[in-house]
Structure formats: structure tokens, C-alpha cells
Write a protein that binds this DNA or RNA. Structure first.
Lengths: 112, 112
DNA sequence: CAAATCGAGTCTACAACGTAGACTATGGCG
DNA sequence: CGCCATAGTCTACGTTGTAGACTCGATTTG
């Protein structure tokens, strides 16, 4: 795992949204979570291309959910973050955290 | 300041590096700080084009320092982060913070 | 049942951001 | 002067972020 390429800003947010949603993470719910929590509105394109690229890098996976009782047979992709995805996310967090350290008092917002 | 466009991942780091360095922030010292704190190595190109773009967006400014005693007359650009730069940075932090909230326990690293 | 609608995902194209490395210019030094 | 070092410029390209029109099956509705 020598040099893990860095995550883009949106990539981070999408990974985080998936983690937040747990087993209910599919395309549009991810977009909703992002808008709700981060005030960030995405188009379909923005969402799915990023998801595809994360998949390509092995940071997320998905399996089809074949519809339950309601939504008879209408499948959707349930996304999960892979172990490598979690690591990449933590690496990004670690770097930012380190760079903020000492500045929090002056410019920061970390309320808790 | 309705919708402040989001900062790229490197843009955030460079802004933070400048804040950390205070009055000693010029091109190469920024690169050094980034490597030191974040383990992120940048080429000249990566550094200055990003700096130029931040300037264009009004997030950083610089003034020439005309050499002191040593370095007689050799000028360098001393960078500072503008008020808008600080806001943009805080906005990014706020979003990430919010997205991480609740996940810290499971996946987080925030040691303190 | 055809038409309108909705939810989920695909595809194409382009703008913005991240990156490298060769190049210029000026000063110090043997 | 020739050479090394520092600070910054320029060109070019790969990666990430973005929009919106399109497909396709299901549900609603007149």
C-alpha cells in the first residue's frame, strides 16, 4: 500500500456519504445525503462518474438489490466502501488534521 | 458571497500551509511545509499553477520581498491568505467535519 | 390500454484541478 | 568566467468534477 493516491474533494464526500448511509447507500440516496449534510447538490453525471471512478480504483463495491415487496423487482445498486476506501479516507483526514493543528484556535471552527 | 465554489484538495493544503508559515510563506517554503507536515511532494509546476489559480480566485495575495541583508536584492513572493481564502477553508472544514460526525468512533483517527 | 410520470442508472462532452519537467533569471563563489 | 543554488515561468497533459440529455422498466391515470 506504499503510496496511496490522494482522494479528490468530492470523492471524499461520496465515500463518507456511503459510510453514513450504511446498508441504504445507492445512487440517489447518496446524492440526498450529500445535499442534506453538506449542502452540496450533484447532477446525475457528477454522481455516477465519480462512483464509477471510485469503483475502478477499488475503493467502493456494489451489489444489486433485487427489489423487495414494494418496488417489485426494480433493482438498485447498493454501495459499500472497501477496506482500501476506508484507509484512503483516513489518510486524507489525517493529513488535513495535521495541517489544521495549531490553526484551529485562530481560524478553526471545530466546535466540539 | 452566496455560493462559494469548493476548494480542491491540494488548494486546501496549500492555503493551510500558507497560514501555518505566517510571514515566511513563499513558493518553496510552502512546498517544504507540505512535504514536512503532509508527506506530499510537489513539483514546481504543481505548486505555482495552484498558487496562481488561488490568486485568480482572490483567495491568496502576495507582495514582493526585496531581499534583506543576506540574499541582497533577491526578491521573493510572500503569500498571504485573504479573508475570502480563510472563509473558503473554513467552509471546507465545516463540511468534512459534518460528514465525519458520528463516523469517528468507527473509522476515525482524530486522536485528541 | 396509451400517455404521463417517476425512480434508477447510462452516456457524452467539457471545465476545473493536479502534475511534471524543462526553461529563465539573478546572485554567490572558487 | 563557469558552476551551483534559489525563485519563479511556461507548456503540456492526466485526473477529477460537472451538467444534462437519454434509456428503461414500473406505477399512475384518464
Amino acid at each position: 500500500m506504499a503510496d496511496m493516491q490522494t482522494l479528490g474533494e468530492l470523492e471524499q464526500l461520496i465515500l463518507l456519504a456511503i459510510l453514513r448511509l450504511g446498508p441504504e447507500a445507492f445512487g440517489l440516496s447518496i446524492a440526498r445525503e450529500l445535499e442534506l449534510q453538506a449542502g452540496r447538490r450533484l447532477s446525475r453525471g457528477a454522481l455516477y462518474t465519480t462512483l464509477d471512478r471510485l469503483e475502478l480504483k477499488g475503493l467502493v463495491r456494489w451489489k444489486l438489490e433485487t427489489g423487495g415487496p414494494e418496488r417489485a423487482g426494480l433493482p438498485k445498486r447498493l454501495y459499500t466502501v472497501s477496506a482500501r476506501g476506508v484507509s484512503a479516507l483516513r489518510a486524507s483526514q489525517r493529513v488535513l488534521d495535521r495541517m489544521w493543528r495549531g490553526l484551529d484556535d485562530i481560524f478553526g471552527e471545530r466546535s466540539s
